[in-house]
């Protein structure tokens, strides 16, 4: 299977003055076409930083990100915008912004200087809304949406960007239980049916183990990647829980007390 995304000895973090604060060192991983990949790790381990580095919002401290076997930094930003789309944790709140208009921003890499949408662009926007089940909300004001609805609209915006890779930072963070499951199943469906490579970070390990094709696990000094079942067997998740009296059951992937 074709490799969509590859990390090669990637170290991410940020600079405080001259010193570098390394959050994740020498990560090696790969995501293939049409794969759903979940990124997990404890808080403050740099999940967001890793995703931001992959997307190109910040520079890697060392190592490389490859997008379709070409180094990420050798792409022009405009070119990257047609390969990767992003859904951040940022809660977009703009008065009078209609759902259709928000999603149509995803078409901007393809439109003219004035941003006029062609018939084809409009069809893609409506199709993206259909894929997330929000087609009846097109004319609604974004401020009137619930958290679950807003998250789906933000995913539709990324889909409208029509990129083979979609990166999402904690898409289920502010959602209630049914919405959490629905969003993850939606991502799974998009990977399978739309053949997209989807990388998302989450705190819901059990759900991720059950739904992902592959998982990336981050700790302060280690990075694992693999099929969820293998990682579970190797007890990788328990290593993240070492300072707690919790563990992940190797069969059911549910959190239990030791």
């Amino acid at each position: 299977m074709e490799s969509a995304l590859q990390l090669q000895n990637l170290s991410v973090g940020y600079h405080i003055g001259a010193a570098a604060k390394v959050l994740c060192a020498n990560a090696c991983a790969e995501a293939k076409k049409a794969e759903l990949v979940a990124l997990v790790g404890r808080n403050g381990r740099g999940k967001s930083t890793l995703l931001r580095t992959i997307i190109g919002l910040q520079k890697a401290l060392s190592g490389k990100v490859f997008i379709f076997e070409k180094a990420q930094h050798s792409y022009h930003v405009k070119e990257l915008a047609t390969l990767m789309s992003y859904v951040s944790t940022d809660n977009v709140k703009v008065g009078y912004l209609k759902v259709f208009d928000l999603v149509s921003l995803g078409r901007y890499p393809y439109t003219s200087w004035f941003g006029t949408l062609s018939t084809n662009d409009k069809e893609i926007v409506m199709h993206s809304l259909q894929l997330v089940g929000m087609q009846d909300f097109a004319e609604r004001n974004t401020n009137s949406l619930s958290d679950g609805e807003r998250q789906r609209v933000m995913i539709a915006r990324a889909l409208a960007q029509d990129t083979p890779i979609v990166v999402l930072d904690e898409p289920t963070a502010f959602l209630d239980l049914p919405n959490r499951y629905e969003v993850v199943f939606l991502l799974q469906r998009l990977a399978r049916e739309q053949r997209k490579t989807i990388l998302y970070s989450t705190h819901d390990w059990s759900l991720a183990v059950k739904t992902s094709d592959s998982m990336w696990v981050m700790d302060s000094d280690s990075f694992w990647e693999g099929a969820p079942a293998d990682l579970l067997q190797q007890g990788v998740f328990d290593k993240l829980l070492i300072d707690t009296n919790l563990r992940l059951d190797a069969k059911t992937a549910e959190v239990q007390q030791k």
Partner: peptide, 10 residues
């Protein structure tokens, strides 16, 4: 909709 989105849109 924010600078991160603007950047990811090229």
């Amino acid at each position: 909709i924010g600078e991160d989105y603007a950047r990811s849109l090229g």
